[in-house]
Amino acid sequence: MSASNGEFMAPGVLVSCDWLAANLDAPRLVIVEVDEQPLLYRLGHIPGAHGIDWRADLQHPFVRDIPDEDAVGRLWRRLGIDRDSIVVLYGDKNNWYACFGFWLFWLYGLRNLHILDGGRPLWVSQNLPMTRDEPFAVAVRPPRPRLTGSMRAGFWHVLATRGAGAQLIDVRSPEEYRGELLTEPGYPEEAAQRPGHIPGAVNVPWALATQLDGRFKPAHELLVLYGALGIRADRPTITYCRIGERSAHTWFVLHALLGFADVRNYDGSWTEWGSIMGMPIELGDQVGELSLPCPAPAGLDVPSGLSQPLAAEV
């Protein structure tokens, strides 16, 4: 399998439309479409592709969390993923949700994962084959999902690692970063209580990593882009956006394409940070600085025996 750009540190993690079109019948290949608009799948999809619903399949049904190991195991069984599968994910919105799926599957230990470069938009614009036929489920024994926490961040990671030099990347639009918008227009249900950004976060909108046709930019351009903003591959890095899907896109770029050693996706993201009482917030273009420990919210006593929950030592 060859990478579409051919020069990434992890060659092969990206597959091109040409490669996929030529290998649709390849054994062990499992193609998975993940869209923001799940109905698109039923309108037409790549032959042989399974469709998953981001909200139903990649989220916990009740708690705001990712699905547990059992649910992921059931999902892999439904998709026909076994130990030898080559899994290719793609979707609309330049692969936002496909990258979230990649991140989640990686988090649960699946490794032979790939992203279709350009995603659904490029496949459609090239008039490559589409079908409405849904593939038959193949009985398989999927690998047991085993959660590894090293690619996921919570707000406590931000607090705990920021003091240790971790770099924070806010991948939302500049308007959201500056606090001029509470959320991007069209997503009112994803608004936090307060606008702004996490003090210390650099704004690198996710879209800067892609070309107009939706493919990722070549590695040397990406390195220049992040390098110019002082983002270094050897430092712990945390990406965030509003609910964690766009930041999964940038996580994919840094982790899978550029080979950053320690990158976490903070999927609680701004909807969490911007809604927690007492969280420090920065407005405007200035990056700001996260001063630790954060002061407790006014009038809130910390019960004896508990440490201040927003302290750096959490």
């Binding site: 609309d92 919105k93 330049n94 938009p121 490029l122 459609v124 107009l212 046709d213």
Partner: peptide
């Protein structure tokens, strides 16, 4: 236009 992705169409 939606199918063109977030960068839209020329």
């Amino acid at each position: 236009v939606y199918e063109r992705g977030p960068h839209g169409a020329s």
